[in-house]
C-alpha cells in the first residue's frame, strides 16, 4: 500500500550566507501492507510528523521516493496530488481541522462536493457515514457545539465518506481524554477489521502505538533498526 524508499529531507533556516541546513529525515525506508495498522512513534522533533506530511504530499521531499497504491506520488505536482488525496487518502488530525462555519453534516459532505457528486448521492453517503460514527443526531451542530471526541468522530466521518483505502492519522488522540481515546482506538480497529482500511498513525502515545500491527520508531530522523514489531 505504502512504500517509502531512501527518503531524506532537511529544512533550511536563514537566508543566503547564513543559511543553515537541518536534516529531519535521513534515508528512511519502510513499507506498509494493505489492511495493516502501522504506527510511527518517536519523540518530539524526531521527524515523524514531517514523514507523514511528505507521505500526504504537503511537503516535497529533497530525496527519495514515496509510492502509494502503486503510484510514485513523490513526483506529483500539487494539483495531481490533490486529486490523488481526494480519491485514495483520508486524514485524521490532532486538532480535528473542521471548518467552523460549517455544520457536522456540511463538513462530512465537503469531500463529496469536491468529487462532484450529485446532491442526492451526497445526502445518502453523508448520512450513512454520520450514522456509522454515531453522530447522525448531531448533524446540524457546528464544531463549536460538539465535544472533542465528537469533533474527532466528525473528522473521521469526513475521512471515511469517500471510502479511502488508506487513512493517515497525525496524533489522532492528542486532544482527547482517556475514555474517548479508548473509544476512538476501538473504532479505528473496527474500521480496519470490517472495511479493510489501512491506517498509518503518527503518535507518541504507547496506547495508540499498541494497536498497530507494526510499529516504526523514528529517532533523529532515522528508522531505528530492530524495533519493527
Amino acid at each position: 500500500m505504502i512504500e517509502v524508499r531512501e527518503l531524506s529531507h532537511a529544512f533550511e533556516i536563514g537566508k543566503k550566507e547564513k543559511k543553515t541546513v537541518i536534516p529531519v529525515l535521513v534515508d528512511v525506508s519502510f513499507s506498509v501492507e494493505k489492511g495493516e495498522i502501522v504506527t510511527i512513534v518517536g519523540r518530539s522533533g524526531s521527524g515523524k510528523s514531517t514523514l507523514l506530511n511528505i507521505i500526504s504530499g504537503f511537503i516535497k521531499p529533497k530525496h527519495g521516493e514515496v509510492w502509494i497504491h502503486g503510484e510514485k506520488v513523490s513526483d506529483y505536482n500539487e494539483g495531481k496530488f490533490a486529486d490523488f488525496r481526494l480519491a485514495y487518502l483520508g486524514f485524521i488530525f490532532q486538532s480535528f481541522q473542521l471548518i467552523p462555519s460549517m455544520t457536522a453534516y456540511q463538513n462530512v459532505e465537503l469531500p463529496l462536493i469536491l468529487k462532484g457528486m450529485t446532491e442526492k448521492e451526497r445526502q445518502q453517503k453523508t448520512e450513512e457515514t454520520l450514522k456509522r460514527v454515531g453522530l447522525i443526531e448531531y448533524k446540524d451542530h457546528y464544531p463549536s457545539e460538539l465535544s472533542g471526541g465528537q469533533q474527532q468522530r466528525v473528522s473521521i466521518a469526513r475521512a471515511l465518506v469517500v471510502n479511502p483505502p488508506l487513512i493517515l492519522a497525525d496524533e489522532p488522540t492528542g486532544s482527547l481524554d482517556s475514555e474517548t481515546e479508548n473509544e476512538l482506538l476501538q473504532f479505528i480497529q473496527e474500521l480496519n477489521r470490517d472495511l479493510g482500511i489501512t491506517f498509518l498513525i503518527i503518535t507518541h502515545d504507547e496506547k495508540v502505538a499498541a494497536i498497530g500491527h507494526k510499529t516504526i520508531e523514528i529517532t533523529d530522523g532515522r528508522v531505528m533498526e530492530g524495533v519493527l514489531a
Binding site: A82, P111, L114
Partner: peptide
C-alpha cells in the same frame, strides 16, 4: 485556515 483544510482533503488549486 479553511482553504488549508480544503486543500488537505483534496481540493484542487483550480477549484
Amino acid at each position: 485556515p479553511d482553504i488549508g483544510i480544503m486543500k488537505a482533503i483534496g481540493a484542487h488549486p483550480k477549484t
